[in-house]
Design a protein around this nucleic acid. Structure first.
Lengths: 142, 142
DNA sequence: TTGCGTGCAAAGGTTTTGCATGGCA
DNA sequence: TGCCATGCAAAACCTTTGCACGCAA
């Protein structure tokens, strides 16, 4: 987990306030920036990018990269602390749906990654990309 | 799967020849372009991008998008059916290092996600975030 | 000969950065 | 008061595109 900001600024409060009101909703940096400016904020785009990156660092926000060209998506997740052990996120690349999974088998790979590969997995920031059941059907991938 | 090229060009042969010689090795479009030019090729970067994209379409090459900013990585996989089965990527949140893992145990979760949760994992797009061994030590997380 | 593939340069779009200013503690 | 965070604009970066030319079939 990265460092928290030292100061509580108006811009950060505005930004965070907006995200918190829409937990689980995907928005781009531009979305956030446009909305806040419409609301009369004087926030600049560099601040939006800097704060979003920081919130990702703090684990309050997830960042999704769909492909290299389109803008990244951000989503408020809050501080679901340790209660969510064995909780993972799957994101459908086709419809964009985010699936929350509780699964001990998946929790086991966390253990395995650490024991065998000395890699300490961060489940809150790891997203499994793929195709959900519905999209497999509609794409004839089944 | 997309369309194959209609013509067999010198540039495509050069590019493909280089990739084939290094199966499983990650390289960026710039890597490929630089190498070929060093070898005396007159290939242009747009051709490199266009051919790489086409090879991905044909299933001969894998494309990895690690994060939105760094360049995409390409890797020759050939027409081996289960392309790069058991290949996963871990990214250290602290130092940014990318770790390339071949691990059957990890491959098993792919199967599990499909059988139990009907989610078809895309290993090419999925990156495990966490801390590498060195950074755990230097951060006193161990 | 046909028209696909190429090369160059420029555009495109997202994200980062330099630097002076302003505001939190 | 000290110095972190901000805003603006410009830069950086990877990738795509327009267009004329060359080359494979």
């Amino acid at each position: 987990m990265g460092m928290r900001p030292k100061y509580k600024t108006k811009q950060r409060e505005e930004l965070l306030g907006y995200l918190e009101r829409l937990p689980g909703v995907h928005m781009t940096a531009a979305d956030v920036c446009d909305y806040l400016k419409e609301q009369g904020s004087t926030i600049g785009q560099s601040t939006v990018y800097r704060q979003l990156e920081r919130l990702v660092d703090e684990g309050l926000v997830n960042k999704y990269i769909i492909d290299g060209n389109s803008p990244a998506c951000f989503e408020y997740v809050g501080s679901q602390e340790p209660a969510c052990s064995g909780c993972f996120h799957c994101k459908c690349e086709a419809c964009g749906k985010l699936i929350h999974l509780h699964c001990d088998e998946l929790a086991a790979i966390q253990e395995h990654l650490y024991m065998e590969h000395r890699f300490r997995l961060d489940p809150l920031r790891t997203v499994f990309y793929g195709l959900c059941e519905e999209c497999q059907k509609s794409q004839g991938t089944v």
